[in-house]
Design a protein around this nucleic acid. Structure first.
Lengths: 176, 176
DNA sequence: GAGAGTCGGTTTGATGTGCAAACCTTGAGC
DNA sequence: GCTCAAGGTTTGCACATCAAACCGACTCTC
């Protein structure tokens, strides 16, 4: 969907444990408040006070997170008045691309955490809620149809491997 | 996809800020190590030591998280030997349903965090990587086709509302 | 049968992070 | 002047997190 960033935010070596883009993503947006802040900006709440009120985050933590997210290119600040200088936060392409992450979390929360969905997302009038669909073919994804292939030489699905050919390593069918 | 839990893990009142299943989901799996632990179990690494090695999590933190995830019904322990008693961790239905969350994070990480995807997921031989697709109709979701509807009386997309009819509140098209 | 290794944690003590509340600065409205 | 709003920053304290050592039950090797 999107191209690889020109300068990656993270090298694989920076990731402790398995080199994995899930871990990389969590290093950027995996704290307690970041995704909730992105959610609010996505809802059209661009101001610091709005984000603080709607997430419940402490103001100092929120200020730190918004700064980090801006530096990571997830959000950008836009000045909306000059005197006194006031800026709002807006989504970059990277931030907009967190929509599927928020929706996956929302669906899991609806299904396994809360009693009744507090919000409904409609796509062309119908609920987006449904099975995981393949980004290529659009069909519902079942675990038996999934295979995982490691692209790094020294890790396979079971963990670090001391040495071996680049394309080696077990390939698994998922439980999901 | 799944039915509402019999006894919800969380009441909406327990959620600080906006009552939202994203926040609910993050309250269960939104810490630094939980999703990485689930990832490892999904890869077939069921033992404490394997999960500790492959995530890089400190052992005490991991022990605490695995216990919480077990109590939340995301994982379950299964004894695989009696003497000394040894248990492995396995995914419940709830845990398996985190597949789309992990995949959404993986895709975002591939697109915006790391330089080259360290792992490829194949669905029937082709990459699952692709646009967000609607769970109902299977089409790619664009922001202009999305509407969000609050199902709670005292919050709309902008934030808390003092009073008003149940179905009121702005409805938005998303940026995503 | 003594010693080392495995496994799944728990304990320890130092360090870092998160929190609520108060405070600050610039300007607007009264 | 006084008060209020916005967008943070500072303060002081509590709690969470970390790396490393430790532990108990058992097996394996010599």
């Amino acid at each position: 969907m999107n191209s690889t960033p020109q300068t990656p935010l993270l090298e694989l070596d920076d990731i402790k444990g398995r080199p994995c883009s899930v871990a990389g993503a969590l290093a950027i947006i995996g704290d307690r408040w970041s995704l909730l802040a992105v959610r609010e900006v996505m809802f059209g709440n661009h101001r610091f006070s709005e984000i603080a009120r709607n997430t419940g985050a402490p103001r100092d933590r929120l200020a730190a997170r918004l700064k980090e997210l801006t530096e990571a290119g997830v959000l950008e600040r836009r000045q909306y008045q000059a005197n006194p200088p006031r800026s709002g936060y807006h989504l970059t392409e990277s931030g907009k691309a967190l929509g599927p992450v928020l929706q996956a979390l929302r669906q899991w929360g609806d299904d396994f955490v809360v009693a009744d969905p507090p919000m409904t997302l409609l796509h062309k009038g119908h609920d987006v809620h449904g099975p995981w669909r393949c980004g290529t073919c659009g069909e519902a994804v079942h675990g038996r149809d999934l295979r995982r292939i490691s692209n790094v030489a020294d890790w396979d699905l079971t963990g670090p491997v001391s040495a071996g050919p680049v394309s080696a390593g077990p390939v698994s069918a998922g439980p999901v």
